[in-house]
Design a protein around this nucleic acid. Sequence first.
RNA 1: GCCCGGAUGGUGGAAUCGGCAGACACAGUCGCCUUAAAAGCGACAGCCGCAAGGCGUGCGGGUUCGAGCCCCGCUCCGGGCACCA
Length: 940
Amino acid sequence: MTLDAEIPAHRYTAAKANEIESRWQARWAADGTFHAPNPTGDLADPDHPRAGAPPLFVLDMFPYPSGAGLHVGHPLGFIGTDCFARFQRMAGRNVLHTMGFDAFGLPAEQYAVQTGQHPRVTTEANIERYREQLRMIGLGHDPRRSIATIDVAYYRWTQWIFLQIFNSWYDVQADKARPIAELIAAYESGQRATPDGRAWAHLSAVERRKIINDHRLAYVSEAPVNWCPGLGTVLSNEEVTADGRSERGNFPVFKRNLKQWMMRITAYGDRLLDDLDLLDWPEPIKLQQRNWIGRSTGAHIDFPTGAGPIRVFTTRPDTIFGATYMVLAPEHELVDALIPNVWPAGTKDAWTGGHATPGEAVSAYRRFAATRSDVERQADAKEKTGVFVGAFATNPVNGAPVPVFIADYVLAGYGTGAIMAVPGQDERDWEFAEVYDLPIIRTVQPTEGFDGKAFTGDGPAINSANAEVSLDGLGVTEAKARIIAWLEENEHGRGAITFRLRDWLFSRQRYWGEPFPIVYDDSGLPIALPESMLPVELPEVDDFSPRTFAPDDADSSPETPLSRRKDWVEVELDLGDGPRTYIRETNTMPNWAGSCWYELRYLDPTNATHLADPAIERYWMGPDGDIGGVDLYVGGAEHAVLHLLYARFWHKVLYDLGHVSSVEPYRRLFNQGMIQAPAYTDARGVYVEASEVEQVGEQFFYRGEPVNREFGKIGKSLKNVVTPDDMCTEYGADTFRVYEMSMGPLDVSRPWDIRAVVGSQRFLQRTWRLIVDEHTGASRVTDDAIDDDTNKLLHRTIDGVRTDMAELRFNTAIAKLIELTNRATAVGSAGTPRPLAEALTLMVAPFAPHLAEELWHRLGHDTTVTYADFPVADPAQLVAETVTYPVQVNGKVRGRVEVAADAPEDAVREAALAEVAPHLGGKDPRKVIVVAGRMVSIVA
RNA sequence: GCCCGGAUGGUGGAAUCGGCAGACACAGUCGCCUUAAAAGCGACAGCCGCAAGGCGUGCGGGUUCGAGCCCCGCUCCGGGCACCA
């Protein structure tokens, strides 16, 4: 006798689940079940069951289609949004839910460099695999709205948005971006003065263009970057290791200034910061963005030198009388002009770094600084390095000469790239002053008992007076105000606000990205292509790799793959003044570009004349008395800062220019947790393929060698990818979905562990068995009435599940459903009453949609469960007739009393006192607290 | 170093507003069914203790009639950021 023969023919097994799942997936695809109707245009459908219903836009952070395929970490968020979306559809909303692909990216390009395989080929194959995997999980996406960022029809609009940004400037008065044409008009009319005061008409065309370019939101500028000659590319800090080498290839990395495209995100610093208050986001994420933007209030102050003033930014202008030296970033533009031929009188030995002249000392220090990564500078925080440039500046408040140093603890990209150093009130400055034998003057009286070095707290100012102004005795706040007023009166400086946020470096020397819609003429200045010339298609190339150099050739410069297509780079165009030859921009856009606006394209994916029809954008994302935006955005916290900040920035530009009606792109954000999986390292610390590791007792072995186990984020780098495919085959997609949703709260990270998955399978099997006879396949549904207790539980469950679903608390919703099925099983030996069977099917539908669809049809319905009404609890069934009060004596539960729910407080008190009388020893209690509906607490 | 999280049975977790700690599930034990097993169904189940009872939410204090939850001080784990002037 075989095992198979003993399993009832109609049991809900994995095989049965798979049969049901593929059947309904095919049916849903054929019927377009998850199509969401637009109010107008191609995707409008007045006959749709949710046409005209209140809209709801549910969005996932779209994945990068990697070669390893979807892993079990991805679906946690995807299934979560799907359950939410399905619930909201059943609750009457018109739900937009789809999925796209963030498909430009380095891995495909690196693979192309290694194999010669075109990145488009591998990327499209990966996307195809992702689509299959997503379909297998039963996600209810509207497939008509799916996009990939590499689609020409999509990146045409990415380029269009770039042109909008390039062709705009930030009007500080109006506090918004405006078309660049309005700035040109202001110059032409003389309403706005030119920087050097000459009449606009007297400037050459090139001079005019330069002035205008200085105001654009996208501009070309020298920017300090991590240049890696060995790879031929610029690297992010993340790609540079602690010892200043490339993560990939282990080549040396140099800090270099290079011409790069930048985006003026700093113009939006205030709004990006202030508008966080409007968002329904987790507070920790908002805090991270606030810290990243880092608005600080202080003053700009000019310190005169022989080579012109050094402008510093400080948050502590009140301490200026204690400024005993200055530090410039090694890359600061004034350094070269300051250097004298010989060390001046008063130069201390410690200041010279042992060099014969200031010039030698500065070059040597710059070479040293260039080899240090930001990470390395951090690691060496204790050991301050720097060198005297051989010149002095003058402290404007007291005329004292202050030596000027360069040191890499001052960053070129922050503030003005220069600081006044006040060792008495700043710990880093104190340490530097100790190493370089510089004077330390306290200008704030430390608190009594303070035994540290620099005092950064509040206190009365001391040693802070000149002939015209005295701060002595003032607190920090008042001292700041008084000195700023004095500095402004005497034109030494003014109050200022700076941001930690820096402009966004927007160009990459890579192949696999969006080409810029930009050409250059003889002047070397960029010219925007007109919209009619979009898209600028990414051309084919023979070799995808950037040109590489000797790894230590610090003076080399990047050469991009596109620049080698000479026939593409040189282009004859008529830009309004007859055909001329231009040179194309050969950098490409960063990976972020495509992910900055994809939600907008989902709205109206086929629109050929607008990135999205304004009426459609207003329908799905419009403010509606609020700020607007996507109703729910779910993704990992690793995107807390960069992606979310860049996307907010682009959205705000589009808002200013009138292309969208919503002020923010993502009104509500939810961070799903990370699923971790065991990863194993061998004796050398190298990760080995987790699927080949065997466990013997407490030990783990890979090909006979012992390995160490740790837990980490699932991915290729830890060689621990676990795909959902096996789960779906072994248990069915519905079981997989229920399991992922029941493992714990959606926002908690946890290791992947499938030991408990059978619990989810048993739950679905029970649900099935309540409605279908396992042996005959016949219906077990009866016309009997539900008994009172079960009916009460049913309505409590409906009520609880509805609340849980709206709050994305799927784990507790499932627990409640399991309780209900367990009760139904216990009382239902004769069959399941129809209202119970239907309610259960409907409530299970968001989690196990295939099973629910099958049961729904077996219950006699011929339309999809997708748009059936989610059950509503009967309030009458939610009120309890009696309440059981636990009775505490001195904080310990000593008994419980059951009283009528509407019993007056006195009755509850009497009952409670009677119940615990033996514990009171005949004495009157000192205090009795009755918490209505909760408990009684007695103090004996 | 700074910032943000987190720590609850053998395991994942529940307790949503300061009010019965451990819902639900996994693993476990026992029973029913079965020739037997699997599946299914049912019961037990925080720890110590025969019991009465005591102890229990990382550790030490505090506030409160009452603390997993609030406050102070630590430990460990996870994540993020950083010479940010």
